[in-house]
Design a protein around this nucleic acid. Structure first.
Lengths: 130, 130
DNA sequence: TTGTAATTACGAAAAACTTCGTATATATTT
DNA sequence: AAATATATACGAAGTTTTTCGTAATTACAA
């Protein structure tokens, strides 16, 4: 259960998402480690990453272990929860609440693997049973 | 066909989306009309709306007819195009490119009407045929 | 016609987000 | 032990977005 997380916290900015992504993917990291990974994507100063992560910790997006000199940061939220919240927001503000339109848009104009297709069919099956 | 539209233009801010939504829904509007509608949702000053719409026009998000004293503003982009662009962005930055995860998330935990279900099935059918 | 209301243009303050420099502390190396 | 390297804290500058006040202009009404 998520508690003490404000609505805004659940809608991270693009820069915050970059950091969350890396932490979700590569587990708990020090600032140094994260900054190195970030710099494989674009040039960012060390203290910039540090400051971002400190702010994100304050906002409740990250937690950190300060036992050692190099603090170790972890994401405070599960990807599903952030994804769900952002998608709801996009649904409301961009798609005027039209969920099937969103899904169509997500599927249409794109190559979908047969694997994805069967996943989808399974899900639909499950929904029809209710 | 979209011309001279930068990547950023296609990713409007939340405030810009509010205005686009109203224009998409209620057709071309004067600043006064739009500001009235906006104020049914939240308190916004008239000149705030005016400035936003002027900036959005400059960015290429809106067009305007200045023939009369009260300029008449229209959206410059079709909802589908903006929606598609934003969804691609969310897919990349929030869902790490995992499209079926996004679709599952959009469908899961929510009531989907039987109508939406058959729409979906039809779409899947179509995709399987290719 | 003179004053009142409504409109646009525009500058700039306010707020939110991003970036970094500097100071300070802690560890490591020579 | 002294010099060097690495870490955190923190203030503040830089950017972008949002908000609004004021001035100038145009229409409308008394």
């Amino acid at each position: 259960m998520l508690r003490n997380i404000s609505y805004n916290t659940m809608k991270p900015t693009d820069s915050e998402m970059e950091i969350l992504q890396l932490l979700w993917e590569h587990g708990p990291l020090t600032v140094r480690e994260l900054n190195d990974k970030l710099n494989q994507q674009r040039r960012v100063g060390y203290t910039t990453s540090l400051k971002m992560m400190q702010i994100m910790t304050q906002k409740g997006l990250l937690t950190r272990d300060t036992a050692l000199r190099s603090h170790i940061y972890s994401p405070a939220l599960r990807p599903e929860d952030v994804q769900s919240n952002i998608l709801d927001h996009v649904l409301k503000t961009v798609f005027m609440g039209d969920r099937s339109r969103l899904v169509m848009q997500a599927l249409g104009n794109h190559n979908v693997t047969t694997e994805e297709l069967s996943e989808l069919k399974a899900l639909i099956q499950k929904m029809e049973e209710k």
